[in-house]
Amino acid sequence: MTYQLDFTSLGAYWPQFLAGALTTLQFTLYATALGLVIGIVGAIARGSHVGWLRLVAGIYVEVVRNTPFLIQIFFLFFGLASLGLRMPIFVAAVLAMVINVGAYSTEIVRAGIESVHPSQIEAAESLGLSRFQIYRDIILKPALERVYPSLTSQFTLMMLMSSVTSQVSAEELTGAANNIQSVTFRSMETYLIVGLLYLLLTLLLKAGFWGLGQVLFPRRRRLGTVL
């Protein structure tokens, strides 16, 4: 078997590769920011005293975590369209990612919240802090510090899973690659490049999360220990 790698014909497609990578990054940043918000709200709802809130959050988490991501996108993009609800590909793709990563984040943040010992809350109550202040300062902050590595790896995984959105013709990195290889017939080379670009994006994302962690969690920065 002799196969001669030939990248020359792909040179002209750099702008498409780059645009795809940027779109993937854009999808990921939206999904991370909104997914984190949903994760926090969802985790609070799952631990709520209000029964129906707990139920709604529980159903959301279980449905999303127990169905394939591809089916979730198809449902949002094709399923809802047959009901007359059409949305742009970009919106459908990001929405699917947010819904998906939000459910996983909910469970991760909930684990963090449950790791806060009740005596911490008692101490905060005894100092006269309000319920909201206790939630923000004494529960959520250490909870997020504790689960930060799990959260960021979930977001990184989400970036890799965003390649699935190419199935509804999203022009992200995988979508761009599909187009390029169908024109150039250089599948091997195209997917090698795309693989490398994903690797680079992952490293970039990891570096970003690391830097953000250094800013957000001074304790971890100074002591280097886990909370």
């Binding site: 005596s119 911490q120 008692e122 101490a123 905060a124 005894s126 309000s130 902050k141």
Partner: peptide, 21 residues
């Protein structure tokens, strides 16, 4: 909350907030 501003309590297990200086 007003009561708890008047009354301080110290616990056996200290209960300092570990993420704060």
């Amino acid at each position: 909350r007003a009561l708890r501003q008047d009354v301080g309590i110290v616990f056996q297990s200290y209960n300092l907030f570990p993420h704060l200086t």
